[in-house]
Nucleic acid binder design. Structure first.
Lengths: 220, 220
DNA sequence: TAGATTGTTAATCGATTAACAATC
DNA sequence: TAGATTGTTAATCGATTAACAATC
């Protein structure tokens, strides 16, 4: 077993997973500015990460550079896109067309990267039939029918806290493996379901903590 | 120097800061259900955290329990509220009244905890004068005047990426020490400014990674 | 070739966990 | 008092950093 296989077998650390999107965004910027070559030292300088950590992060997935040269930006970007799973499209459904749901549905930054919200459900009959981001808002009772006739990759939960767990269960029961959760609640789901939390309140409380305890800072 | 002082002097680990809001929410739930007493073992069971870690986390800030008894829920909650800085009000301004800004302004979950958005700015003249969450939308040119006559604690950035750094600079120049950043950009600011990022795209990319690399899971 | 920079190993650092004396 | 559980110390684990042989 190679070092890489050993590292990977133990699971990719959360820190690494968190930095991959950061690399992705910066490399995208570099290609937009026609920069073709970068070293781990330059990358680290730009992102506030040590060069050793960057090389260590990449080494979980392969060898993408050349000694004495560094990395070809476009090649490295392609590798990271592949690692992040960005070479395919994701079929998404949105549950909850309230303020937050509408914002997510209208958010352009991931739409054009293959993350397509293709159906929207809300329990409010007043919203039924309205258009939102190119989708007709459907009653939640139609959820199972939709999921059984469409292979959905990701369910976006922008529902009130009280119903989020039930909605999560219904998504999972129909085979949805990814949940993007905006409701202020830790969801329970089987191990093979991936849940990513976007907790506005927790984020704001961290900010509040850091404002209240300046000495605790260090972060970033 | 006590152990606690030594620990704290080295800075509070991000992991601890991240768990504090989790404790806060769960303890709030317990008080709502009139549960008055809890041990670190029970707390850990409920939150998927080891009891030792919970006690270690608390010990950064003091001794809140009693041997042989555990913790009084209401006392512990009060302590954590104080640690998180929730015994005061925060004067907030929102920059950007687009989809995301509107969602944040309308989001109730932190409004009633002393986080008050008291002014909203947008560069779009069509939005000027409209009401949003009880505030009149003002032109961005009024920002400095507002900040110079109001002590603002937190600026919420829901602006397009292109202008976010400039808006951040203008907030910081007028003494705003906390930035809640929703725009897909790492902001530059002096050390004493606390920046908390809410990066939708990064979150979605982490989800995409975990869906693509199931073996990497382990998380949560 | 000489210079530069990778990928990887070893060393360090820091966070988590286990153990237990203190004590309610 | 006996039982339970804390707060803290020591042990473990894992992630980050430094160093360097490999090599483009």
């Amino acid at each position: 077993m190679s070092t890489r296989e050993k590292k990977k077998a133990a699971g990719i650390p959360d820190g690494v997973i968190g930095r991959l999107p950061v690399y992705y965004r910066y490399l995208t910027e570099l290609t937009e500015n026609d920069i073709q070559r970068i070293s781990s030292a330059q990358l680290g300088e730009a992102l506030g990460i040590t060069a050793a950590q960057i090389r260590s992060d990449f080494s979980y997935f392969g060898s993408f550079g050349q000694q004495g040269y560094g990395y070809k930006v476009d090649q490295l970007l392609e590798q990271i896109k592949a690692i992040l799973g960005l070479n395919r499209a994701y079929h998404m459904v949105l549950l909850g067309a309230g303020n937050l749901g509408r914002a997510v549905a209208s958010y352009g930054n991931f739409r054009n990267r293959g993350f397509d919200i293709r159906a929207i459900f809300d329990s409010n009959p007043l919203l039924e039939g309205n258009y939102l981001a190119g989708c007709i808002i459907q009653p939640v009772s139609r959820l199972e029918h939709y999921l059984s006739t469409n292979k959905v990759d990701i369910g976006v939960l922008a529902t009130p806290r009280e119903v989020s767990q039930e909605m999560c269960d219904r998504l999972v029961a129909q085979g949805v493996k990814g949940i993007w959760n905006f409701s202020p609640l830790r969801l329970q789901a089987p191990e093979d379901v991936v849940i990513e939390h976007m907790h506005l309140t927790e984020s704001l409380l961290r900010l509040s903590f850091r404002l209240t305890n300046p000495q605790a800072a260090a972060s970033e």
